[in-house]
């Protein structure tokens, strides 16, 4: 098991090196931030002053070393657009996205697994067929449309829930949370459902198809031949075997939630990292893009690593090293 985890750690390291390289190339070769920061009316002095200030006048290797050095310390320089420290902006925005993502993830995983198991076991039932058909609409409906739909229904027509923003937030140290106030919690509901719905559908469909696959296996047939009840076969044998491949994908989906937050945050004007990133792309604000990329890849890598370790615990074929 140890070599397996070491291998994964090495791979994760590789992912970070690659994203680091991409982030740096973006810094170095993409766009001219001067164009973006100063409008049409600019003097040569302005341009030169800004160049020196941003360190763009130095040779590429020096810039690269500086970038690596600073990145490790969480320092990504100054936003071209806002003129503030990128790390400061990110720290300010992160709680909003993380709270939203965590809530959606719980919603997606719990509902996804429950519905997936249900539709697999009651394969030919009316309810299962209905859920499956609905899920197809779920994957065909783009996230932003779901968001707009929910806003229209619950904010505009019914007026129950807010249509944008985080509501009232409480500050605890460097963290701002919406969990402690009524308006903060209310504001979370619609974005969390919007963000989690698509992932939930994916997880549900995956759990269902894996479980059906497992139920076709010989050992399930043999379990039936031993006279085990359907309950034991479904929830003890089949479910455990189903979870082995599903866990990896769920890990990827959790990472995806953070990325998909970009869409939800745009629709709900949620003051998180996603909104920051999409604005950065529109204005080619490279430091923010690079920092977001690095931060999100660290998050993905950590999630995937945890999933792999969990995986090794579930599957004895990995735990006990091969004879």
């Amino acid at each position: 098991m140890l070599p397996f985890i070491l291998k994964r750690v090495f791979q994760s390291f590789l992912v970070l090196v690659v994203t680091g390289a991409i982030a740096f190339s973006m810094f170095t070769f993409v766009g001219d931030p001067i164009d973006n920061m100063l409008g049409q009316e600019r003097t040569m002095e302005d341009v030169e002053r800004l160049r020196t200030q941003l360190g763009l006048d130095r040779p590429v290797p020096v810039q690269y070393f500086k970038f690596l050095n600073e990145a490790v310390r969480g320092n990504f320089g100054v936003s071209y657009r806002q003129g503030r420290e990128v790390s400061e902006i990110i720290m300010e925005r992160a709680p909003a996205t993380l709270e939203l993502a965590a809530l959606s993830a719980i919603f997606a995983v719990v509902m996804g697994i429950a519905l997936g198991v249900f539709t697999a076991i009651r394969r030919d039932g009316f309810a299962a067929n209905f859920i499956m058909s609905a899920s197809l609409i779920g994957v065909s409906l783009p996230t932003f449309l779901i968001g707009i739909l929910l806003i229209y229904l619950f904010s505009v027509e019914l007026g129950w829930l807010p249509s944008f923003g985080r509501g009232e937030v409480t500050k605890i140290g460097g963290w701002t949370t919406g969990f402690l106030t009524e308006s903060g919690l209310k504001a979370l509901i619609l974005p969390a459902i919007t963000l989690g719905l698509y992932q939930m559908t994916l997880i549900m469909r995956l759990v269902r198809s894996e479980m059906l696959e497992v139920l076709r296996q010989d050992y399930i047939r043999f379990a039936r031949a031993r006279g085990l009840s359907n309950r034991v076969i479904n929830y003890r044998h089949a479910l455990k075997n189903t979870m082995v491949p599903v866990i990896t994908v769920i890990g990827l989906q959790l990472g995806a939630i953070i990325a998909f937050a970009i869409i939800t945050e745009t629709v709900f004007q949620w003051p998180g990292l996603g909104l920051l990133f999409i604005n950065a792309i529109q204005f080619v604000d490279i430091p923010v893009m690079a920092a977001y990329l690095m931060m999100i890849s660290v998050m993905f890598v950590v999630i995937n690593l945890l999933v792999d370790i969990l995986y090794a615990f579930i599957d004895p074929r990995l735990r006990v090293s091969a004879k």
Binding site: Y219, F222, R224, N241, D315
Partner: peptide, 25 residues
């Protein structure tokens, strides 16, 4: 029928490699 399976009538399949659940001892 399920009550009879395993209790009264046992079964042995062809492929022992796939007859046992790999995740249980």
């Amino acid at each position: 029928k399920r009550a009879i399976r395993g209790r009264e009538i046992g079964m042995i399949f062809q492929d022992p490699l796939t007859s046992l659940n790999p995740l249980f001892t």
